[in-house]
Write a protein that binds this DNA or RNA. Structure first.
Lengths: 226, 226
DNA sequence: CCAAAAGTGTTTCGGATACACCCATGC
DNA sequence: GCATGGGTGTATCCGAAACACTTTTGG
């Protein structure tokens, strides 16, 4: 057995496929959601999956994932993060496919997902209502969600799920939806305001009792905490 | 542009190589070290690199990495962790190679590294003396080290770097070497003993002033903290 | 015996948590 | 006007950090 196979690699012919799959999280109707798509063709025709696609010859996996976001929900320039790479020989029923999973957070505005070629449906599904997914995508999603939870402990990613202006209550609901437990309203407010990247717009949200103040994010300052 | 390319994948022919690279950390002579190997053949002949190898048809990437550990330092059954996957089209000068980086922690005993085919040298290099590495391996190593530091904050991985019996002083030195800063001796002792997976062997280490007590790990209990 | 390191306990501080009141708005 | 929710401040708790003395051993 040779130790370092790069030389061998250059002389052998492989035919692995390499793909990127995306867990795209959004928040709407008071629930954390993930974008899932339904396949129209084999394998796994009729099954829901995470959106994914093959890496092209001139792309990195990150660029593949970004392209998917552009095509599917029409967003550009939002950060994506690697979850992990899945390489079980049997994870794809037809041939060997190694996939890298990413997750991304998108604002609910703008993007209505479109089913495209090979797909006959796409929807924002509540995280706790996601059906069994095709391939090993249930595992990918579970890992992506865990990575998101983990990351939220350390940086205030959640604001990437909120519209341009929002109340602290809404921000808190996003946090609670992600970490899965309730937070104290006052402690949350103190903690978030201490980050110092929120700007009080001095406007109040209409139609809500109490007259909550609307905030927006100072993107420059937010960068410091990512 | 199609969104979900799996079907296309099954009909097109790709020839990407998929490899696993390992940052294998060890601790000896009061320093954190990483195993690096020197390539004897092109590309990067004469350059130091992280050990790596191609994934076989019947292996996962994790199994590839484990195989490397077995071949190179003759250790089995130690945990490995994914760092990330690197897919820049230009990262390999000859052809497209996508690699997944892992890291592992090995005890210093047993394993003297062997240079094997395609390699003419292998050594345990102090982390702060690692030369510029071939490919993008300097980046891989930096990321692996960061992942290790991150992980050590949350679980007491460091004991996988220590011999079977050790003093608390030695354990502390491993911690300090990884996180890169000094710790208070008493606070460290309290924190580590609180984990409750260390067993006092009731023996004292000879040849050292103060007569420090030797400890060993209760592996069963350690599992709970990984 | 003395220098160097190991073992032990207490105090302090800061961030996180728990908690109560008054104010603003929608109905 | 009243019920619902928003805004603010304080007491408490817990884990982390800072810190000093005694005991053991090698030389």
């Amino acid at each position: 057995m040779n130790l370092y196979n790069t030389t061998r690699v250059t002389t052998e012919s492989h035919s692995y496929a390499i793909t990127a799959d995306c867990a795209i999280f959004g928040f709407s109707d008071d629930a954390l959601r993930v974008l899932i798509v339904r396949r129209a063709v084999a394998p796994f025709a009729g099954h829901w999956c995470l959106p994914g696609g093959a890496m092209s010859d001139d792309e990195t996996l990150e660029q593949t994932a970004s392209r998917l976001l552009r095509e599917l929900v029409n967003v550009e320039g939002i950060p994506i993060r690697q979850v992990g790479t899945y390489s079980s020989p049997k994870r794809h029923p037809v041939r060997r496919v190694v996939t890298t999973c990413f997750y991304a957070l998108v604002r609910p505005e703008d993007h209505t997902p479109n089913a495209q070629k090979y797909l006959d449906d796409a929807r924002w599904c509540k995280l706790d209502e996601v059906p069994q997914l095709g391939y090993d995508h249930s595992q990918l999603l579970a890992d992506a969600y865990q990575a998101l939870q983990q990351e939220l402990q350390q940086s205030p990613l959640a604001f990437q799920l909120l519209p341009n202006t929002f109340t602290l209550k809404e921000a808190q609901e996003v946090y609670e939806a992600i970490i899965g437990e309730d937070l104290d309203r006052r402690n949350f407010r103190r903690k978030i305001l201490a980050y110092d990247f929120l700007i009080n717009t001095e406007e109040k949200k209409a139609g809500v009792k109490g007259g909550p103040e609307l905030y927006r994010v100072d993107d420059t300052k937010l960068e410091n905490h990512l």
